[in-house]
């Protein structure tokens, strides 16, 4: 029984991810939940390294850990933390868990039962994405999408600024 380092890495990273995700879901305190999300996001970056695309891993760390997570924490800090007046009812909890369970089994079902995947993954050559490949694709075949993404980003920037501005007149947003 020979186990590669890849397997070990995968197991460790998975432990990080799942632990973070469970904590983020079930911790009562929202700040702790946001911090435990850090482990999940970082672990997923590790997955990307295992999946042979370093660039995405770096992007994940930069955007998610460095951007989105910070944004979330800012959101927590900037808003009123006084709530939890009405905790969830038992009925609600049960229905949510039940629904999620059903959805999980639906998602899992093809993974467990389908045979096509099994045939396909026999190939030796796994895909590999060099940063230069991605750059080339973005500037040639995918240039339109790239530009579109840029435009969307710009629009969102303006829209967020518009949304967030303090308006003295009462009709707000």
């Amino acid at each position: 029984m020979e186990i590669l380092g890849e397997n070990i890495c995968f197991i460790i990273i998975t432990a990080f991810i799942l632990g973070g995700a469970f904590l983020a879901t079930f911790l009562k305190d929202i700040t702790s939940a946001a911090f435990s999300l850090f482990f999940t996001l970082f672990g997923i970056a590790g997955y990307y390294i295992l999946l042979n695309s370093d660039f995405i891993a770096v992007t994940q760390v930069m955007v998610y850990v460095g951007g989105v997570l910070i944004l979330i924490i800012f959101g927590i800090l900037l808003t009123n933390r006084d709530f939890n007046h009405n905790p969830n009812t038992r009925l609600k909890k049960i229905s949510v868990y039940l629904t999620s369970l059903v959805l999980f089994s639906i998602v899992l079902w093809p993974i467990i039962t389908s045979k096509k995947l099994a045939d396909n993954i026999k190939g030796d050559r796994y895909a590999l994405a060099l940063t230069s490949d991605i750059g080339e694709a973005l500037t040639t075949d995918w240039i339109f999408n790239f530009i579109l993404a840029g435009i969307v980003l710009l629009l969102i920037l303006i829209a967020s600024a518009f949304l967030i501005r303090r308006n003295d007149s009462s009709n707000g947003i």
């Binding site: 229905s95 949510v96 629904t99 059903v102 959805l103 639906i106």
Partner: peptide
């Protein structure tokens, strides 16, 4: 949101 998720489940099935 919960209702829409249930809807998705039913649709998928």
């Amino acid at each position: 949101f919960l209702f829409s998720i249930i809807g998705i489940i039913v649709l998928t099935i």
